[in-house]
Design a protein around this nucleic acid. Structure first.
Lengths: 133, 133
DNA sequence: GTACGTGCAAAGGCTTTGCAAATGC
DNA sequence: GCATTTGCAAAGCCTTTGCACGTAC
């Protein structure tokens, strides 16, 4: 299992201290927004600016190493793209994000796109739910 | 079949001339962004400001009459909520938005949420595709 | 030494908002 | 008349960017 850092180096990116920090934060998992990534990185190197975090995230995204998500609250969330593909369920009460996978849904989506005359290149699926008591 | 205007009145909203214009534009269908709604409304009454369009759309949304969509390009798109529920396929080459419905996917989503211990309250599904030749 | 990375502050894009004037009922 | 709506411009929020300075190799 390769780390984000290893994949970034394999992609030919120059991995400076700051970029390493951002990569390590993302490896911590979750779906942090930019500010959260910045705070976590700044805990280890207070010198890192938020502009650098933005630039690093965009750089990683262009290289296909991380994924940008929009959950509808106006700011982007980021996650390591190394993991298997998954979708998200957002707890409407707490904002908690739960990951899940469903080969069935993936296949159904592909078939729907096809029936409309399209080749599926990407998709976005978010469920919003309320925890059952 | 009720119009957006009729539903807005039924909801107790004061439907001024400007709000009527915004409602009529949305009834024209499609997935217009705010600027597009404003342009269309201003064609009929050049006096309407974009602030009023924003306020009308948010008002309608709070009343559950229209839906706000985010397709990842940074601006919101709006549509009349009267129609049957549907999802969207976005043509990655042209940005064209195609609506579709799939009871199978709806049901699958409900079951997935349930298996995670959640009651599904909403969802968002967008497919991104490339037209097949 | 040259290209690249970074901090800072300014600017950009979309959206909201404070305020005074206009409008609806 | 009085509350609500509206236009305008300013401000807010997230994100990007210009520029000068630092750093990597």
């Amino acid at each position: 299992m390769t780390t984000l850092l290893q994949r970034a180096e394999a992609a030919g990116l120059r991995m400076t201290g700051h970029r390493r920090l951002v990569a390590e934060v993302l490896e911590g998992g979750g779906h942090p927004d930019v500010e959260t990534v910045h705070e976590a990185a700044a805990r280890r190197d207070p010198g890192i600016s938020i502009a650098t975090v933005y630039r690093a995230l965009n750089l990683f995204e262009e290289a296909g190493l991380v994924e940008k998500r929009e959950f509808g609250d106006g700011r982007a969330r980021w996650e390591d793209a190394a993991q298997d593909h998954h979708d998200h369920l957002i707890d409407v009460a707490t904002g908690e994000v739960i990951e899940f996978t469903s080969p069935e849904i993936e296949e159904l989506q592909r078939r729907i796109a096809e029936s409309l005359g399209y080749e599926l290149v990407d998709h976005r699926l978010e469920l919003f739910g309320r925890r059952r008591r």
